Amino acid sequence: MRFIVYIFIVFAFVNYAYAAIQPNAAVQKISLAVDHAPPYSQINQNGEVSGAIVDIFQEMKKQLPFKLELVGCPFSRCVRMLEQGEVNAMGGLILTAKRQQRIQFVTPPYMVLSSSFVFYARQDSQLQIKNYDDLYGKKIAVMRGAAHFKRFDDDKKLIKVPVLAESTAIELLLKDRADLVIAVEDTADHAMSVLNQPANKLLKMQYRFNDTIYGYLALSKQFSTTLLAQQIEVLMKTMATNGQLNQIIAPYKLPPLNEQALRF
């Protein structure tokens, strides 16, 4: 298997080298969709886009000939644009069978969190969620288009209130328009500290779903068939195996890729 992967990497870089020396070869543009999910990706008040996936692509630009267009958008719109081929790439996506039918995931993942899906309520709500069944009858704010854990995502009996951003979900909760918010524990706690959100007004429920959560770079189906996309996939694997990817994500307090992640 490793020999086959090695041959694939050599073949891809030979193709890249051949394309790069063509005098009339146009420099391609990659459009990268980025949603506001601080601290791992964010859009400031001036519309400037930044984050771990942006840093990864900026590093890739040093080795591959492409221009980078950053497209800021709400999460659900970013995913929809990717599925429709209106943008080429997006980061931080959880792999699901449904998504695999519509977009191409690049391995290995660049985000690996041994965390939990947790539920937040208002501090003064008196709610107690001790097991999954306690979720029934509660209005749960969820980010539109997001993937959580299978039982939750597939459960049609739950009352889910879709929103465009995690910050909006928290606002609904504080305004008593939702009873609960679901989030990844590590990212939610970190985001609230970075954004100075009112964590003291929220109460973490006892029930949680423990999982290892992987965040991937994903490409549109249309873009994934191009030579440049194949070079991106090879370079992502190379950056992961030589430790470069870990160096890029370290400032975001993301844990380094483990052996299991590198086997993907």
Results as ranks from 00 to 15, higher is better:
residue 54 V to P: 00
residue 203 L to P: 00
residue 56 I to F: 08
residue 183 A to D: 14
residue 227 L to A: 15
residue 224 S to Y: 04
residue 99 R to K: 13
residue 217 L to E: 05
residue 9 I to N: 02
residue 239 M to V: 01
residue 168 T to G: 11
residue 135 L to T: 04
residue 95 L to K: 08
residue 98 K to E: 13
residue 118 V to T: 08
residue 3 F to A: 10
residue 220 S to T: 14
residue 254 L to R: 01
residue 216 Y to N: 03
residue 236 M to G: 00
residue 47 G to R: 07
residue 3 F to Y: 07
residue 247 Q to S: 13
residue 156 K to V: 14
residue 225 T to M: 10
residue 223 F to I: 11
residue 152 F to D: 09
residue 68 L to Q: 10
residue 190 H to S: 10
residue 39 P to H: 04
residue 63 Q to D: 13
residue 1 M to R: 09
residue 54 V to K: 04
residue 213 I to D: 01
residue 147 A to N: 12
residue 59 E to Y: 05
residue 101 Q to G: 15
residue 136 Y to N: 06
residue 190 H to Y: 12
residue 192 M to V: 05
residue 198 P to S: 04
residue 169 A to H: 00
residue 34 V to C: 08
residue 71 V to I: 15
residue 62 K to M: 10
residue 252 Y to H: 09
residue 222 Q to M: 07
residue 155 D to R: 10
residue 163 V to M: 07
residue 11 F to A: 12
residue 164 L to Y: 11
residue 151 R to Y: 15
residue 171 E to G: 05
residue 120 Y to M: 07
residue 239 M to T: 03
residue 122 R to T: 12
residue 120 Y to R: 12
residue 119 F to I: 03
residue 36 H to A: 06
residue 260 Q to K: 10
residue 117 F to D: 14
residue 70 L to V: 15
residue 244 Q to V: 02
residue 218 A to Y: 12
residue 21 I to H: 01
residue 257 L to G: 10
residue 188 A to S: 12
residue 251 P to E: 05
residue 228 L to Q: 05
residue 249 I to Q: 01
residue 9 I to V: 14
residue 212 T to R: 07
residue 33 A to V: 08
residue 164 L to G: 11
residue 219 L to P: 01
residue 20 A to W: 07
residue 256 P to F: 11
residue 224 S to A: 15
residue 94 I to P: 01
residue 43 I to E: 10
residue 114 S to I: 11
residue 208 R to N: 14
residue 32 L to S: 10
residue 159 I to P: 00
residue 38 P to R: 04
residue 185 E to K: 15
residue 131 N to G: 09
residue 120 Y to I: 06
residue 213 I to Q: 02
residue 2 R to Q: 12
residue 24 N to Q: 11
residue 213 I to F: 11
residue 97 A to H: 04
residue 154 D to R: 09
residue 257 L to Y: 05
residue 124 D to G: 13
residue 158 L to A: 03
residue 38 P to D: 06
residue 6 Y to W: 14
residue 227 L to W: 01
residue 237 K to C: 11
residue 237 K to G: 15
residue 210 N to F: 04
residue 218 A to R: 07
residue 243 G to Y: 00
residue 94 I to D: 01
residue 107 T to L: 11
residue 172 L to Q: 15
residue 72 G to F: 10
residue 212 T to H: 06
residue 97 A to M: 06
residue 105 F to C: 07
residue 69 E to A: 10
residue 142 V to K: 12
residue 93 L to N: 06
residue 235 L to P: 00
residue 67 K to Y: 09
residue 9 I to M: 05
residue 185 E to G: 01
residue 7 I to V: 09
residue 13 F to K: 06
residue 196 N to V: 02
residue 127 L to D: 05
residue 152 F to N: 02
residue 248 I to N: 01
residue 223 F to L: 06
residue 112 V to C: 09
residue 71 V to M: 13
residue 103 I to L: 09
residue 62 K to R: 15
residue 35 D to Q: 14
residue 80 R to H: 05
